[in-house]
Amino acid sequence: MTEKEAHITIRDLTMAYGDFILMRDLTFTINQGDIFIVMGGSGCGKSTLMTILIGLKAPAKGKVFYGEVDFWGADQETRDRIIRRAGVMYQSGALWSSMTLAENIALPLETYTNLSPGQIREVVKLKLALVGMAGFEEFYPSEISGGMQKRAGIARAMALDPEILFFDEPSAGLDPVSARRLDDLILELRESLGTTMVVVTHELASIFAIGNNSVFLDVSIRTMTATGNPNQLLAETRDPNLLQFLTRGEKR
């Protein structure tokens, strides 16, 4: 897999709720195999950007390309097909509460593959083990803690070995060790399977540890002000808002 192949291209994107414009003129590229960080202060539209990328909300203006395909210009069927190759981890896990964790992870597998029940069980076991939750198959989401729900949500997102994984605030609410293991997992999946990762977060430790590309959404001027490797941005930026963000407000 060549490193610099564009996976998702965003061009002149404007996000809005009715008349209220959240962000305008977003143009950036997420490359194949990137760990791409979407960062910005609270309420800047990070999560909204993700809902646009995963096909839940149409942009007010602009285009999103998956490879060569115009995502929002295509019909629903094409969009569904593209999104089937993506995995999404929602902010609070969004596990289906009437199913056990095993059933949660098995559902996409049962729907989209023709694996035998035995194989599905093994895959479920592996995915849970990968997020450090081996042995929790028979639990219901309401019986485990918030952090565990989150990790189980990641296991479900990974179920189909997607080409691209979206994470909404993955390490918020996790203890430091689990958060670190999660970072390792994200890095490892990218290394070994070449999965593209889009991570919406404002956890600085994670941003610098895993991100090799990023976009910064500046809430004060309602557009993006920088894109690139976060470590490099920290070293080179002159933008006070971005610097303040990347240093927890210590430099400006």
Partner: peptide, 25 residues
């Protein structure tokens, strides 16, 4: 093993399986 598989396997076995947590059925 391929390096990626090796590391993922290590990650998968980093936290031991929780045995006592299983539900009695």
């Amino acid at each position: 093993l391929p390096p990626g598989a090796r590391r993922l396997l290590e990650l998968a076995s980093a936290v031991p399986e929780k045995k006592d947590a299983r539900h009695t059925e």
